[in-house]
Amino acid sequence: MEHRKRLQREQLSLGESRELILEGPVAPNRLAEMSMHKALDAFRRPLEQHIALVEIAGLDEGRIILAREGNVIVGYVTFHYADELERWSDGGMTDLIELGAIEVADDYRGCGLGKRMIELAFAEEQLENMIVFTTEYYWHWDLEGTKLNVWEYRKMMERLMQAVGMVWFATDDPEICSHPANCLMVKIGKEVPLSSVEHFDRVRFRQRFMY
């Protein structure tokens, strides 16, 4: 499977001679030269998360799309194969990739960075030969920081993913089924073969009666 990694870059003005650079997929050596904003701590401490991003960027299929002010990372999106302990890795599909973490530092929220980073990831049909999925779990959501309830946050995440053509898919995955706000969203690239789509259907449903 060809993993297309053509660097894309955009600029976003913040006024007062300040600007953000949105770019990716970023090479691991370039990523290692940057630093993480101290507020990027939703998943790990910023330094630990920085190390994790560099590791993901070094994977054959891994890609990091980020927003930075100067050399400071203020937001990022990760893409990688599913964890081998999760059902989504069943069968070792090389054209199934997970849109994993999305995080934006508090001071930079409200200017659509999440949406713009995801759109950049799909630019120039880089992912048209992949099935891209994301698993949304309410316990990962920043309900306190955003002051949204679980259904408002779910709607926000749906709109974010729909911006690049991702749609809701059914599944019998126990974690997703454990709460009605959780969901699986997917985009099947136009170059993905039917055999991969059928394989993904078998991964989504392990109980035959749910087809």
Rank of each mutant, 00 (worst) to 15 (best):
V74K: 00
K115R: 15
A82Y: 11
I56N: 06
L66I: 13
N29Q: 14
L85K: 13
A52C: 04
P28H: 10
V72D: 10
A67C: 04
Y76R: 04
T94A: 11
E69K: 04
A27P: 06
P28D: 08
D60F: 03
Y76P: 03
G112V: 05
H50F: 11
R45N: 14
M93H: 06
E61I: 03
L85C: 08
E69N: 02
R116N: 10
D107P: 03
K38W: 03
L53S: 05
A42D: 11
L96N: 00
H80G: 05
H37S: 06
A52G: 01
V54D: 07
V72K: 14
D83N: 15
E98W: 09
K115Q: 15
T78H: 07
F43W: 15
A67T: 01
Q49M: 13
M34L: 15
R116A: 12
L99P: 00
A27R: 12
G75F: 01
H37C: 06
G100I: 11
A57Y: 04
L47T: 13
C111F: 14
G110I: 00
V104T: 12
G62C: 08
A101R: 15
E55Q: 12
L113F: 02
A101P: 04
H80Q: 15
E69F: 00
P28N: 09
W88I: 07
V54P: 05
V54Q: 11
E61K: 02
V77Q: 13
G91C: 06
E33I: 05
H37V: 03
L96G: 00
E33W: 03
H37P: 01
D90W: 08
L85Q: 12
R116M: 09
S35A: 09
E86S: 13
N29T: 13
K115W: 06
W88G: 00
Y81T: 12
G92Y: 01
L31V: 10
